[in-house]
Design a protein around this nucleic acid. Structure first.
Lengths: 227, 227, 227, 227
DNA sequence: AATGAATGAGTTTTCATTCAT
DNA sequence: TATGAATGAAAACTCATTCAT
């Protein structure tokens, strides 16, 4: 409103009291994620989280009302980030079959260091637990994204006529499987290639596979990896 | 309490005190499984397990040294049962491609009511935790079984030359995915068909697919489910 | 219902499991009362209560859902006991003026070792806090009892026409005051006598005072204790 | 930050930094009293006190070393004010019996909006806690004041020969009682009149009561409130 | 052997107090 | 000086495990 020196940055809330450590919430979220995605919820203690975040336990509770809230914030945050990443990838305007590859790469990369990301807590099953419901909703959005990409690929003739919801879950499941039980030798790109190869052979059309093979024209029989 | 024939008392000098309820261990294992496979380890309380088993809490501890031991017994038991089932299926002498179908059906059926079966506990990661190690070993055996079946299929020319370890994890992952997020409408056979179809298109050879299609010979282009 | 051997005692619940320590709830209530009536609610710790009761902390929580519930149980229990005592006293059929004396004696005796009995907790004021409401109700019942005794005394011509509700609160307040700030030398009977004397001079009629003086007849001017 | 007149900087070498807000201590004391006299010590949080005072939490600690010190300051301050008031009343040179009335009116008025004022802290019983000792001392001074007034009244023949210490506690107790449990309809003057009436009938002489009756001479039988 | 009452180590959470501006 | 963010000691409560029949 009042013209202010540009250098002054945005807001001018006339900070009083001890200044907040900048981006502390984000710092906590990040450090805590590293813990919560490597161990199950109940195996993680707040003491430990605080230590890992380099803050006092009270600070945790100043930023998040409870352990559960912190946990959910991490999960929702993570899933939102993954979704954003995938959406960006999908917006790139690639050929639909190529988009599938992007999804696989993005998703595998995301979970690479978050092997236990999806270990959700179930407040006594189906109890109309707002948080659990929200979690399910978020998860569903994610698979919808994949499903939609597959539907577009179907429309483009890159994927044959199958149930894209089920196909999306299969794809996500494949990725989870290879990531969860990968060995130290399994590199990201290798796994990406394998998953895309198998999945697209499984659900793709000849046209779709041709797109991925990167050979612009020509009607070979699509011998990809091996015979 | 109940008067018993004196003659019986004279004989059988072995059994003293209350005779153990026969097969109690199995009863517990079965009832407890229904709980442990529906909720996370730490969300389950022993009180609840005891109630579900229809026995006192102390009895639980008479048969299992700890909660963890009970949990692992359930897991190992389950995984052994699944393995046995799969082994039987594989021993049937079907064509390798057909064996893959049997694996999928058997595995999906097994997990149908055990959606959270694999939510294992991780005793502080890498801590040379004997149980966790054992768990990993068991789990590995299971995937090895699948892997071996795939290798046989490869040898038979039903599956192309791919990394069967990774393929096995993909297959298990696909099954987990479709099972975990299936809707009420998704029937077992339909999912089995879909998984097998996609997977075998993904990794199979034309010969392998032909086997599954049930048409003994002939060289069509293998349009299976849809175009 | 079914006639059972008298010796068998009441119930026959076929006790199973570790037998409960008999009257443990009462024991706890009693031991905890000694603590809660000598210190403020928030100054008392459950660890301490457990120790004083000679039980584990878990046992406290097995018998009372929370610290607050234990506290309230003690208070309600105490007030009920006092009321029962007073009701018994009032049922004795004494002359109304004499009943006042009984009330004073009973009440002072009850609070003699419970000087902080009435230090109730106020969950954020007036918040329709069921417990706080209940507490107020119980307290009101107690003062009603006194009030009714005074009303009977009024009807009998032993107390003059005054507001018995206010008089009851004054009497209770007097007792609280002398008890709370009594010295080590102040004996119970002496305080009872003083309170009754002052109160009955204050609210009584000549007839009422005569009753207390114990002189059955005669119409003197009622010089009691001193001029 | 803000440029200040150089000349000011040169003068006034004493005041450096931000000048203290004048009378801030008194402001705090007053606002905090409203909270501490309505809830128990442990139910009050410093955050809340700071908010009510309209200052930061740090400021509270700049003026009072601890929560307890603030609390005691409020208590001591309040009790001192009451004492001062009563002393003024007593210094007025009224007839002793009339002084009792002044005490009652002053005390009731003071506690009218401080119903929980007397919910004092009990530093762990007997632990030679300096503050608790001081509190007891202050409280004792207050009752001494009342006691002395009664002794003067005794000397003047307005109160009969009784233990004035006990009588003082009874009077204070009566006041506490009627105030604590008064209804919305109970007006101050009505309660003052009732308490004085009952108390002076209880401990006064005919002469004392006559003084209060406001009839300068004459020997009626002193029917005050009702027959 | 079976049982459920009793237990206390271990967790989450609160809140008086400190501290960086 | 005033402030409110940060802190961690302390307190309530849980639940796997033990124990007295």
């Amino acid at each position: 409103m009042t013209p202010r020196p540009a250098i002054q940055a945005r807001r001018l809330p006339r900070r009083r009291g001890r200044p907040p450590i900048p981006r502390l919430r984000e710092t906590i979220l990040q450090a805590a994620e590293a813990i919560f995605t490597r161990r199950q919820y109940h195996e993680v203690q707040m003491d430990e989280v605080a230590a890992a975040c380099g803050v006092g336990k009270g600070t945790l509770y100043r930023h998040f009302r409870s352990k559960r809230e912190l946990y959910l914030a991490i999960m929702f945050d993570g899933i939102a980030r993954l979704r954003a990443e995938l959406e960006t990838a999908l917006a790139a305007g690639d050929a639909p079959a190529r988009q599938v590859e992007r999804i696989v790469r993005g998703t595998l990369a995301f979970f690479w260091d978050r092997r236990f990301f999806f270990a959700l807590i179930h407040g006594h099953e189906s109890k109309s637990d707002g948080d659990a419901r929200e979690w399910l909703r978020q998860r569903a959005q994610l698979s919808s994204l994949v499903q939609e990409a597959l539907e577009q690929a179907t429309a483009a003739g890159h994927v044959r006529a199958i149930d894209c919801r089920i196909a999306a879950e299969m794809l996500l499941g494949m990725m989870r499987g290879v990531n969860r039980y990968r060995t130290r030798e399994d590199g990201l790109e290798r796994l990406v290639a394998t998953v895309v190869d198998v999945f697209m052979r499984g659900v793709g059309t000849r046209a779709g596979r041709r797109v991925l093979a990167g050979r612009p024209r020509l009607g070979g029989r699509g011998r990809l990896a091996a015979g």
